[in-house]
């Protein structure tokens, strides 16, 4: 396959970036998108140019490290697939493909296509957990969980924290991520004790990180590689209302949670 790539190149956070055009004749339909970038990079290195920096790790769609806006769509044209699992058979010989990093204020660019998503970690640090110190747990079967609840918790827990939801959202909101994390725990009996405090803490941190508000546009759910449902956001909003009715305020120290 012959391809033309328009790739965002940016030396670092403080240097302005630009699109540069590359051509390759060595792509094949069996390659993953990242393997195609590998090929381009090998060619660049041998020509004495700097290769394109991009994040990736497991290359099997589960670690959430890979990203990329491909022709303007987070993780590219196929639904429910991460960039690492997108194959070049989804493109045609002769195509021109535009490749950009996630674009969001709360995800500053580190270099080329690599962004800083540590804001997600700080949302979890603000309360996205169940406080259960090692050794304090009762036998696993003393806490029965209705299968329907366990399945819903699992649906939400499938979030891989890639950030596609933020990149796709016109508001740059991370509500789908935050809501998925909260819903995973709020569907389980173990997660009830801290449920409302958790909701308000996580959303407060979400806002402090500079993510935008949710206005129910729904692009996030369309691009989500794990098909997290918008319903999680409704559920989180309900929990926020309950937290307000209970008069809960964000616990102190949230905004001082250490940078990840």
């Amino acid at each position: 396959m012959r391809l033309t790539l328009k790739v965002w190149r940016q030396k670092n956070r403080n240097t302005p970036g630009e699109f540069r055009t590359y051509h390759t004749e060595h792509a094949s339909p069996d390659m993953s998108f990242l393997e195609m970038l590998d090929v381009v990079n090998q060619e660049l290195i041998l020509k004495g140019e700097e290769p394109i920096a991009f994040d990736h790790d497991c290359r099997e769609g589960i670690c959430g490290m890979c990203s990329l806006m491909i022709n303007g769509i987070a993780h590219g044209p196929k639904q429910a697939v991460t960039t690492c699992q997108l194959h070049m058979r989804s493109f045609k010989d002769g195509d021109t493909i535009t490749v950009e990093p996630w674009r969001a204020g709360a995800f500053p660019i580190i270099k080329d296509l690599v962004t800083d998503r540590s804001s997600f970690d700080r949302i979890i640090q603000a309360g996205g957990y169940i406080s259960a110190s090692t050794g304090s747990a009762p036998d696993g079967n003393t806490i029965p969980v209705a299968k329907v609840d366990a399945d819903k918790a699992m649906d939400a827990a499938a979030c891989i924290g890639c950030g596609a939801c933020v990149a796709a959202c016109p508001n740059g909101s991370a509500m789908l991520f935050t809501a998925a994390k909260a819903a995973h725990l709020s569907f389980l009996p173990q997660g009830q004790t801290e449920r409302y405090q958790r909701a308000i803490n996580m959303v407060t941190q979400h806002d402090e990180e500079g993510f935008g508000n949710c206005t129910n546009i729904g692009e996030c759910a369309v691009v989500c590689p794990k098909e997290i449902s918008l319903d999680t956001i409704a559920r989180l909003n309900r929990d926020l209302v309950v937290a307000a009715l209970k008069g809960l305020a964000p616990s102190t120290g949230v905004s001082e949670a250490k940078a990840g």
Partner: peptide, 11 residues
């Protein structure tokens, strides 16, 4: 320990 943390094991 994992159940207490909220790991959504199959039920």
């Amino acid at each position: 320990q994992c159940v207490a943390q909220g790991v959504p094991f199959a039920r």
